[in-house]
Computed example of a mutant assay.
Amino acid sequence: MTALGFLYPGHFAEDDYPRIEQLLGSDIRVDLVHTDIGEDAHRVDALLERGSAGRLATGVQELRHAGAEAVVWACTSGSFVHGWDGAQEQVRTLAVAAGMPASSTSFAFVHAARELGVRRVAIGATYPEDVAQLFAQFLRSDGVDIVSVSSSGVITAAEAATWGEPELLALARNSDHPDAEALLLPDTALHTAAHIPALEKELGKPVLTANQVTVWEALRLADRRVNAPELGALFTREPIVQA
């Protein structure tokens, strides 16, 4: 049994995680601990506080008692808003507190793009424009070529959590770019686990979503590889060996 631990802010799209667990197989367990979200706002100051060391440390002990082998901070905006260096320090601090390998959803996107061998991506963000651009800047720190950034201007995670497949498909269509090798949807408040095949079929290319890459990142930390076609190209392709 491989036990994966996640710190998830608030209560928005957490039902993606048991859904993903069902698709991964019976020998993988997904343990989710909710952290205090503070103010529900896609605003830089609120996001910096959401990902503060004190808030993350609160849930770590519960994951340790559950026997988790790796932990991922399941919040994109609450990690990339700290910048590349700040997000690395956030993960290092989390790993020390947890006593296990750690990462965040922001780094999960970076590693997932490497896994698929894509360097040119489009971003379909729910966030306001300034926050969406911070995500693009974070990815550029790893050399990812951002060909387009779409911002929906959604202020709260609560609003993003109300979106269903029609809104997701509209976001994907409006955010895609012909030069993009993949589309990234970075909000963990979006329910995407049930809709990835439809999104990839619509665009004809890989679609990386926040909760999907978060679980994949935990599997990577635990040195597990799982074939799960219903979770999209990320869970079906062989890894690309970078030159």
Rank of each mutant, 00 (worst) to 15 (best):
R92T: 15
R92Y: 11
R92M: 13
R92G: 11
T93Q: 15
T93R: 15
A95D: 05
V96F: 13
A97S: 15
A98S: 13
A98Q: 12
P101Q: 12
S103N: 00
S104Q: 06
T105W: 04
S106I: 09
S106N: 07
S106C: 11
F107K: 07
A108D: 06
A108L: 12
F109C: 05
H111P: 04
H111K: 15
A112L: 10
A113S: 12
L116P: 02
L116W: 03
G117K: 07
V121A: 03
V121F: 01
I123L: 02
T126D: 02
Y127D: 08
D130F: 11
V131S: 02
A132H: 04
L134N: 12
F135G: 04
Q137D: 14
F138L: 13
F138M: 11
S141W: 09
D142V: 12
G143W: 06
D145H: 06
D145G: 04
I146S: 01
V147P: 00
S148N: 07
V149F: 01
S150K: 15
S151F: 06
V154N: 03
I155E: 09
I155L: 14
I155S: 11
T156M: 11
A157V: 12
A157S: 15
A160Q: 11
W163N: 00
G164A: 12
G164H: 14
E165G: 00
E167P: 02
L169K: 07
A170I: 09
L171Q: 09
A172I: 00
R173E: 14
S175G: 09
D176L: 03
D176K: 04
P178F: 04
D179M: 10
D179W: 13
E181M: 01
E181F: 02
A182Y: 06
A182E: 02
L183W: 04
L183R: 06
P186E: 05
P186N: 08
D187S: 10
D187K: 03
A189D: 07
A189R: 06
L190Y: 06
L190E: 01
H191K: 14
H191C: 06
A193K: 05
A194Y: 09
A194F: 07
P197A: 09
A198S: 09
E202P: 00
L203K: 05
L203W: 04
P206F: 06
V207R: 00
V213S: 07
T214A: 09
T214N: 08
V215F: 10
E217S: 11
L219G: 10
L219E: 09
R220Y: 12
L221A: 08
R224V: 08
R224M: 07
V226L: 03
N227C: 13
N227E: 15
